[in-house]
């Protein structure tokens, strides 16, 4: 038996893979679900915060900056651990799923707010003035003139950041969420074989690689010369 055969027998054991495929598939579904919820809630919250910040009401802006700084400085795993292991002491015991979702949502919202806000700032002041001088209100100007321009500079960094944070769903394995990684690890400990881990790794590639390629496409598509 040569080295490759031995490697294949260990890491690509098809029998083991077949046996645990349903478990990994269930984990895959959980990861997809968790990821979708994080992306939706995180981007929505981030956009809402950026819009609130565009009102330029000092105390509100200060609170938003505090939120953003906090969740840009804390490692996501620390936030998850805080929610899952510390909150029960305050009488609230979120499930691992909820803790992971909430933590990643807060982190994504912070990064998204900063990116959206940067996009809004990147629109020249003259655009606001031109629109307001024709009688458009604040909201109409934001909706029709500023946001469409902001989105263009926003999309590439937003895609990259969203992917990077959504990959963090794997951190759920630390707090008993049976997503891909946790399912694979359980399967490994039952089968005494690392092939489920290989399968899990493949599942992540299947899930996120197309998203990364989409991000690359978006990056070239929205590269904008003024």
């Amino acid at each position: 038996m040569n080295a490759w055969d031995r490697f294949a027998a260990t890491f690509l054991d098809t029998d083991v893979m077949a046996r645990y495929l349903p478990d990994i598939a269930a984990g895959f579904a959980t990861t997809v679900w968790l990821a979708l919820l994080v992306v939706l809630a995180g981007l929505a919250l981030g956009l809402a915060l950026a819009l609130l910040r565009s009102l330029r009401f000092r105390p509100l802006s200060a609170l938003i900056v505090l939120h953003v700084d906090l969740f840009r400085a804390l490692p996501p795993l620390v936030v998850i651990v805080l929610l899952y292991f510390a909150m029960p002491n305050a009488g609230w015991s979120p499930s691992g799923f909820v803790a992971t979702w909430l933590a990643l949502t807060l982190v994504l919202s912070a990064f998204a707010e900063e990116i959206f806000w940067g996009g809004i700032l990147s629109v020249p002041k003259g655009q606001w003035e031109a629109a307001r001088s024709t009688g458009l209100g604040f909201l109409a100007t934001l909706t029709w003139v500023v946001l469409p321009q902001a989105i263009r500079v926003t999309i590439p960094p937003l895609t990259n950041r969203t992917i990077a944070i959504t990959k963090g769903t794997a951190l759920g394995s630390v707090v008993a969420v049976s997503e891909i990684l946790a399912s694979a690890q359980t399967a490994v400990s039952f089968s005494f074989n690392p092939s489920p881990l290989t399968l899990g790794a493949a599942a992540y590639v299947v899930l996120f690689f197309p998203v990364v390629l989409f991000g690359r496409w978006v990056e070239t598509r929205f590269a904008w010369k003024r």
Binding site: R6, F7, T10, F11, N160, I163, A164, K167, G168, T169, A170, L171, S173, I180, L181, Q185, V188, N193, P194, L197, T198, G200, A201, Y204, V205, L207, F208, F209, V211, V212, G215
Partner: peptide, 20 residues
């Protein structure tokens, strides 16, 4: 590596390689 969660990589190296 932009698509692959670093934790999965870490677990693979730490818990997978010993099988080999």
């Amino acid at each position: 590596f932009r698509a692959f969660p670093p934790l999965v990589l870490l677990i693979f190296l730490y818990a997978g390689l010993p099988f080999a």
